[in-house]
Amino acid sequence: MKIAVLAKVVPDYEVPAGDFELAGNRAHARYTRMIGLYDENAIETGIQLKEKYGATLGIVSYGQSEDVPILRKAIAMGGDSLHLVLGESDDPYVIASNLKIALEQLQDVDLVLAGQQSADLDRGVVHGVLAEMLGCTFLAQISRIESDQGRWTVCQNHESGSRMLQFSGKAVLSITSSPENVPRIPAVRAIMAAKKKPVEKLQGTDAPPMQVEEVKVEIPKLESVCEFLPFEDMQETSRMLLARLREERYL
């Protein structure tokens, strides 16, 4: 069994809104870069599959050489190899085409896992596009994966519950976070070993991008002045709150 996990290095997704600034329509370069949050869930899911079924686990990314030290965390967590396609595009079609190069290089990947959305552009499109390019099944928001007799049984978390789905053949799955796939902390020895692992760097290709023009990117203004209610007498505060909510026609 061969599994590939897609991982993207993104600017710190926890930068507080008040400190957020843009440079050239993207997050300012001063923010620390790290592996996207859901991508880590996907990596963890991949490692669990590796442990359970003895799969090999390749980490595939599209980005720049500077991302390598950050991506090594995925190896330290339990990935077997790291494949980086070099490129700078933000376009989902270009990204998917480039990821496809690495997946083809890896050969016979049974399952491609990806975080349900990147933690920068919050798009959640690339994996679907990639599935189509690879001509395989794509399922979104998967929380659990089991393999049985050549078929995959997966649990999909959707807005109103969850469902178990089954399919066979190759697939791309987008992974959502669940209590079972909280990313593990890599052991120090694994971190040290990961530093020495060779990284396969692949030259990216040009592919036709989507036909949309990004007009502008702005930071929305949050304006809301909070009225703090007194907390000496809770009964009084409760009544006051309900009265105020009615006054302003919220209730």
Partner: peptide, 23 residues
């Protein structure tokens, strides 16, 4: 922009060579 939408949008887009904008 739900499970349904995100499951189908990317593949449709790629199939039709159509731009996809999510959320």
């Amino acid at each position: 922009a739900t499970t349904l939408g995100s499951e189908i949008a990317g593949r449709l887009g790629a199939r039709l060579k159509a731009p996809v904008l999510s959320e």
